[in-house]
């Protein structure tokens, strides 16, 4: 597994711009969606090219998770159109991997790490069929990739929060998806693993997988992502990370307290109104 660091960023291969006119992998047109009569996203339009790593940023409640759920068909739009690979989200679920924001799953349930990761293969297997050698290999490889191979037979309920996140990531990897939706997958994950995960995702991206990744870590966006979407119930900005995370956009979305501070050549988004002690 490669470990990315800021020092090698300048030389890290950047994805060539997708050819003009290439069909987008993900397309939303005038989509409004929400829960129980309250809208969470208001008429957003977005087209994402294939084979790139896209960050989704925005304040709490800005609709990031809702966007991912729309792409899985877990949330149905009130109006507008959602297309994934040119089809409805429900029709393409098997090609889409998903790591939900923490809290999914019944932690008291007796299930091992290996069994959870195997669930990533179920969509592929279809009803009635049993996992075979290929599936077991994919599970082992996915666990290896997230550094959880030795925990294979442990109960998921007995893992730490960060380890659970890694298991969920492994489940999405075992699915071998063409589109990977990650909802704050690095919450509770240590710094070394975080770098490993970014390296891993960059590797997938280079093999043509499209990665959509929600995060609150604005300072490292430019290090890891090709594109960024700034959400605040609408699309505030969309483009290269350095053009998206700007003072102006931050203030629009977070209010006047948010500012960009430059330290050692890197930008950090900070709350200039808060007291730190």
């Amino acid at each position: 597994m490669t470990t990315m660091s800021t020092a090698t960023d300048e030389t890290a291969p950047k994805l060539p711009r997708p050819p003009l006119g290439a069909r987008p992998i993900v397309e939303l047109t005038g989509v409004t969606a929400g829960y129980r009569g309250q809208s969470a996203l208001d008429g957003i339009s977005l087209a994402l090219p294939g084979g790139c790593m896209v960050a989704v940023v925005g304040p709490n409640g800005s609709g990031k998770s809702t966007l991912l759920k729309l792409l899985l068909g877990l949330v149905v739009p009130w109006s507008g159109m959602v297309e994934v690979f040119g089809q409805t989200p429900r029709a393409t679920r098997r090609r889409v991997g998903y790591v939900p924001q923490t809290g999914a799953g019944d932690w008291s349930f007796p299930v091992t790490v290996g069994e959870v990761v195997m669930m990533g293969r179920y969509g592929r297997l279809g009803l009635f069929s049993r996992p075979g050698r290929l599936d077991r290999m994919a599970v082992a490889a996915a666990l290896e990739q997230v550094g959880m191979a030795e925990h294979m037979d442990e109960q998921v309920g007995e893992l730490s929060g960060g380890q659970r996140q890694r298991v969920f990531l492994a489940r999405a990897l075992a699915q071998q998806p063409e589109l990977l939706l990650l909802d704050e997958p690095l919450v509770g994950v240590d710094a070394v693993t975080e770098q490993d995960v970014y390296g891993l995702l960059a590797g997938l991206r280079d093999r043509g997988v499209t990665v959509l990744f929600t995060t609150h870590d604005l300072s490292t966006l430019a290090d890891h992502f090709d594109l960024a979407v700034f959400l605040n119930r609408r699309v505030v900005a969309f483009g290269r990370p350095e053009d998206v995370v700007t003072e102006e956009h931050l203030r629009t979305a977070y209010g006047p307290r948010m500012s960009l501070v430059q330290i050692g050549g890197r930008f950090f988004a900070v709350d200039t109104g808060a007291h730190h002690d």
Binding site: A104, G105, D106, Y122
Partner: peptide
């Protein structure tokens, strides 16, 4: 037995099971 893996998945995590197309 026929539906074992699906029932097992849904019992553990219905949201992910739905997202996987079950």
């Amino acid at each position: 037995l026929l539906l074992y893996k699906e029932l097992f998945f849904v019992a553990f995590d219905p949201v992910m099971a739905e997202a996987s197309g079950l």
